[in-house]
């Protein structure tokens, strides 16, 4: 493949106008996932649970693969898989250290199961690959409905839990003294997280959920500490990544995930550079003040 071919594989805007309506469902789904991912991501970062997200994703993948094999609803399968995984984590891994080892044990098992189910599956191979690396055209009206309902559940749930969950996440000692029920909050959050992971897998695939659930929030936290702004930025970053990724994927012949992950990675890099610049300015100012004072 020469350079021109390579380029047209990645970007080709021929027939773009005709293709776009075909993926309108995917774009709506992508926007919803961006919203959910951006919101949940803020708590994933606060609670230091990036690894847990990855572990849940692999079990969600196993659930989806199993659903594919027996001809059941794939979204339903991945939701069952990830909620089971989240509950196990929530019940067994209250402490971060326990949690990490449980995830380390669960993750390869989930991935192995998923591969087993896919190997047994006799249908279209694009379906198989899509679960791992994402797909754009697979969202039909029924699935979109299911995605929308689950997204609403996650968003309403997070809105209710927001304040006490923030309190327990950043300041567990004082929150406990204030009588905030840390155990319940953590369990409820795990369920919401499981739902969010299961939804994300439908678009970006099991291997790349982190690009939706971690990267946008991590980028937002680099540039602001204002709670409201953090949420707004995290959600916008996630939406731009997914929707932008879908639109670009349409123009090439590649799966959607490289586009989504690249956009969210670039956003993160830009935010890091901004944070680094600011730190340098602050450092210089402090040094100047110290010089004046002495």
């Amino acid at each position: 493949m020469d350079t021109t071919d390579l380029f047209s594989t990645i970007f080709s805007f021929e027939n773009y106008a005709e293709l776009l309506p075909l993926v309108s469902n995917s774009i709506v789904a992508g926007a919803l996932l961006g919203l959910v991912g951006g919101l949940v991501g803020v708590f994933v970062m606060m609670r230091d649970m990036a690894f847990a997200v990855h572990g849940i994703a692999e079990l969600s993948f196993a659930g989806a693969a199993f659903a594919l094999l027996i001809g059941a609803n794939v979204v339903g399968g991945s939701i069952v898989g990830s909620i089971l995984a989240s509950l196990v984590l929530g019940l067994m891994g209250a402490r971060a250290k326990d949690r990490n080892s449980i995830i380390g044990v669960m993750m390869p098992f989930g991935l192995g199961l998923g591969i087993l189910f896919l190997a047994l599956y006799q249908g279209r191979s694009a379906n198989k690959f899509g679960l791992l690396t994402g797909q754009i055209v697979a969202v039909d009206d029924v699935q979109l409905g299911l995605l929308a309902v689950c997204s609403v559940v996650v968003i309403v749930g997070l809105a209710l839990l927001w304040r006490p969950l923030t309190f327990v996440s950043v300041d567990p000692a004082v929150a406990a003294a204030r009588g905030v029920p840390a155990g319940w909050l953590s369990a409820a959050f795990m369920v919401l997280l499981g739902l969010a992971v299961a939804l994300s897998i439908q678009i970006v695939g099991a291997l790349l959920v982190l690009s939706l659930l971690i990267t946008p929030a991590a980028a937002a936290l680099k540039v602001t500490a204002r709670p409201v702004l953090t949420v707004v930025l995290s959600v916008s970053f996630a939406m731009v990544s997914v929707v932008g990724g879908i639109m670009l994927a349409l123009a090439g012949r590649l799966p959607i995930s490289p586009y989504v992950t690249t956009i969210s990675f670039l956003i993160y890099v830009v935010c890091r550079v901004i944070a680094w610049q600011r730190m340098r300015v602050r450092h210089n100012r402090d040094a100047a003040e110290a010089a004046v004072a002495s």
Partner: peptide
């Protein structure tokens, strides 16, 4: 958060 962090909802 010290004032109202224990309350539910936004």
């Amino acid at each position: 958060l010290g004032i109202d962090g224990h309350r539910w909802g936004p």
